[in-house]
Design a protein around this nucleic acid. Structure first.
Lengths: 154, 154
DNA sequence: TCGAGATCGTTGTAATTGCAATTATTCGCC
DNA sequence: GGCGAATAATTGCAATTACAACGATCTCGA
């Protein structure tokens, strides 16, 4: 029939909420929020980038991200400037303070992952992550189809 | 070092956002939101229950849930009444309309899961879900520890 | 080249959310 | 039995969020 306890979206959602709650509290000690951490991590990972790309990388809505970045800029964590090659875009970069901050937080973030995977050996952890990537791609493909259907009927 | 693309909380979060976005749109056709769906599903699964228990089951904050239930009651999806054995508690139950509605939605929900797992055989899907349960428990254990620490220092 | 349409980011606005305070009730201990 | 602490749910309030509308810039075909 239908069993919540084995329903994938349910399992994923509750992990997300728990992780966010726990790690979010740790981040408060550094004066930042979880979405801010995501932005810092994405910028560290792939360097300065446009707002739209950053939104994709962090799974944060563009409009939400815009305001979030304003706050982070005020705190001196990031810098925003119009892109030279396309004046519609805004390039977002880490400041030195932002880079230092995320560097301090990374060990804690890794610790959290270790705890979440405490009883997984390396191979199982790898297998889990691979499967999560596949799931993400599968849902993405579905959205593509939906968009195409909308496009055809337009 | 630190690689976002293989960082578990990142992988989980982005799946959650994608699932919520996609399925939430489908739910709009039924006039309900994603949190409402979660409440309906939890009530169907385990029958009428107290608000606090429902909050745990759905990973929704009690205060948020309280307001959500008020809206669902107005729409005739659930019924609330003081528990007879403990007048502090409120018992939440599905109405007939609520039960009918969720019954109609379940096939769509299952379809979503099928899509998310489209390239998984039964064993792999099972393995993934088992691992997600373990992860959830691992983080829960961490929170317990945190609480105990707080208790000791109090 | 120029104008319609697409793209990028920000802002208006209304709804949702989470924390803290509040009210009502029960529990534990004397 | 009765009083202080604990628990359940709701509500006040401030912050976050998403969708839609907007202003600015770019693209591409006639």
């Amino acid at each position: 029939m239908f069993n919540l306890a084995s329903y994938l979206p349910y399992l994923v959602n509750r992990i997300g909420v728990r992780l966010a709650g726990a790690f979010g509290k740790e981040l408060a000690a550094y004066g930042i929020t979880l979405p801010m951490w995501r932005v810092l991590a994405a910028l560290r990972q792939r360097g300065g980038q446009r707002v739209g790309r950053l939104a994709e990388a962090t799974s944060i809505e563009v409009s939400t991200l815009s305001r979030l970045l304003a706050g982070m800029e005020r705190r001196g964590l990031v810098r925003r400037e119009r892109a030279s090659e396309d004046a519609r875009s805004v390039l977002v970069e880490l400041t030195q303070a932002g880079a230092r901050l995320i560097q301090r937080i990374i060990p804690q973030a890794l610790h959290y992952e270790d705890v979440a995977l405490r009883d997984f050996d390396r191979a199982d952890a790898e297998a889990l992550k691979d499967m999560l990537v596949r799931v993400y791609d599968n849902i993405g493909a579905l959205e593509e189809e939906g968009l195409e259907k909308a496009r055809r009927s337009a």
